[in-house]
């Protein structure tokens, strides 16, 4: 998986493992079934086998050819269920203690983010609000509060393997922990109207220093903005 798309969160590896596991188990059965199918088609074509046999498939002798592979499939299913639930519980059902909390709000057709300011707390005066830009620090655990202003949106970050719908009227909490610096895509993965195709945001995963610089820069801009506003009045 990581050859196709990068991994940038702590749980991306779990999901990729699950995908590979299913690919191996499912792929084995798929190839086996297809191989048998094509073997039969070739072996029992009219030229090679002019007269068909009479097999009801109701006797135990012949039924076991269905049942044994079938039991094997069930065992594979159990494996898949186990790992699927394990991954799910880790990503969606547990909330590790966060280093910071951010707020994510979807609207037609932009993502609005509220970052905690220099004090590291959300809901204080120095919160930094951005549109279509999310700045996080690498190797820090983040909790996000996901909301929507109008219709359904889906907060999706492929490199994190993270996806969660934003539902109007609800606040959904989730978490992630970036593990790699860089600049990545944030998508909206749920159709949200005419501008669905432009509803992309940027994710900046930064080091601690870079993030601090950015926050300070934002703070300055905010102060300047306020000054301009006051001057206008």
């Amino acid at each position: 998986m990581e050859y196709i798309i990068e991994r940038a969160s702590s749980f991306a590896g779990d999901i990729d493992f699950l995908i590979v596991l299913i690919a191996v188990l499912g792929g084995f059965w798929l190839l086996l079934a297809e191989a048998v199918l094509f073997y039969f088609i070739v072996k029992y074509r009219r030229k090679a086998s002019p007269k068909a046999q009479y097999i009801t498939g109701e006797e135990e002798v012949s039924k076991k050819w269905l049942h044994w592979p079938h039991y094997a499939v069930i065992v594979c299913d159990l494996f898949i269920i186990f790992f699927a639930i394990q991954t799910w519980v880790k990503i969606k059902q547990t909330l590790p203690k966060p280093d910071a909390v951010i707020e994510v709000v979807g609207q037609q057709w932009a993502w609005k983010f509220t970052h905690p300011g220099l004090d590291g707390k959300l809901g204080t005066k120095d919160d930094v609000k951005t549109v279509d830009e999310l700045h996080v620090v690498v190797n820090k655990t983040y909790q996000f509060k996901l909301k929507s202003d109008d219709v359904l949106h889906s907060f999706s970050i492929p490199v994190f393997r993270l996806k969660q719908d934003a539902v109007p009227g609800r606040t959904i909490t989730g978490w992630f922990k970036p593990t790699k610096t860089g600049q990545f895509d944030i998508q909206c993965a749920e159709i949200c109207g005419i501008g669905h195709g432009i509803m992309g945001a940027k994710l900046y995963i930064e080091t601690e220093e870079e993030h601090r610089t950015w926050l300070e820069h934002q703070r300055m801009a905010q102060v300047n903005g306020n000054r301009i506003n006051t001057a206008k009045k």
Partner: peptide, 10 residues
């Protein structure tokens, strides 16, 4: 399988 659907959904 819910775990991998987080990535594959939509």
């Amino acid at each position: 399988s819910s775990g991998s659907d987080i990535y594959f959904h939509d």
